[in-house]
Simulated scan of single mutants.
Amino acid sequence: MTTQDLLHVVCPHCHKTNRVAQAHLFSQPACGSCHQPLFTGEPLQLDAESFAAHIGRSHLPVVVDFWAPWCGPCRMMAPAFAQAAQQLEPQVRLTKLDTEAYPHVAAPYGIRSIPTMIIFQGGNEIARISGALPAGEIVRWVNSVVA
Results as ranks from 00 to 15, higher is better:
residue 2 T to I: 03
residue 3 T to Q: 11
residue 4 Q to R: 13
residue 6 L to I: 02
residue 7 L to G: 05
residue 11 C to F: 04
residue 11 C to S: 05
residue 12 P to E: 03
residue 14 C to Y: 02
residue 15 H to V: 01
residue 16 K to C: 00
residue 17 T to W: 00
residue 18 N to Y: 02
residue 23 A to F: 00
residue 24 H to L: 06
residue 25 L to W: 03
residue 25 L to K: 01
residue 28 Q to I: 00
residue 33 S to C: 07
residue 38 L to H: 08
residue 40 T to G: 14
residue 40 T to L: 10
residue 41 G to V: 09
residue 42 E to F: 02
residue 42 E to D: 14
residue 43 P to W: 10
residue 45 Q to N: 13
residue 45 Q to C: 10
residue 50 S to K: 12
residue 52 A to E: 15
residue 53 A to C: 12
residue 54 H to R: 13
residue 55 I to A: 05
residue 57 R to W: 11
residue 57 R to V: 01
residue 58 S to G: 05
residue 58 S to H: 02
residue 60 L to W: 08
residue 62 V to G: 00
residue 67 W to R: 05
residue 68 A to G: 13
residue 68 A to M: 03
residue 69 P to N: 05
residue 72 G to P: 06
residue 72 G to L: 08
residue 72 G to N: 05
residue 73 P to D: 09
residue 73 P to L: 07
residue 73 P to M: 05
residue 73 P to R: 07
residue 74 C to D: 06
residue 76 M to A: 14
residue 76 M to Y: 14
residue 76 M to G: 03
residue 77 M to Y: 02
residue 79 P to L: 11
residue 80 A to F: 06
residue 80 A to G: 04
residue 81 F to C: 07
residue 84 A to C: 09
residue 84 A to F: 03
residue 87 Q to A: 15
residue 87 Q to R: 15
residue 87 Q to F: 03
residue 88 L to Q: 09
residue 88 L to C: 13
residue 89 E to W: 07
residue 89 E to A: 15
residue 90 P to H: 14
residue 90 P to M: 02
residue 92 V to D: 00
residue 93 R to C: 05
residue 93 R to H: 13
residue 96 K to C: 13
residue 96 K to H: 07
residue 98 D to M: 11
residue 98 D to E: 07
residue 99 T to E: 08
residue 100 E to C: 06
residue 104 H to A: 15
residue 105 V to Y: 07
residue 105 V to E: 08
residue 107 A to P: 04
residue 108 P to K: 10
residue 108 P to V: 09
residue 108 P to L: 02
residue 109 Y to L: 13
residue 109 Y to E: 06
residue 114 I to T: 14
residue 114 I to D: 09
residue 115 P to D: 13
residue 115 P to R: 08
residue 116 T to C: 13
residue 116 T to M: 11
residue 117 M to A: 14
residue 122 G to W: 10
residue 126 I to R: 09
residue 127 A to L: 06
residue 133 L to F: 07
residue 134 P to I: 06
residue 134 P to E: 14
residue 135 A to N: 11
residue 135 A to L: 04
residue 136 G to T: 13
residue 137 E to V: 03
residue 138 I to T: 11
residue 140 R to P: 03
residue 141 W to H: 07
residue 141 W to S: 00
residue 145 V to M: 13
residue 145 V to T: 15
residue 146 V to Y: 12
residue 147 A to T: 14
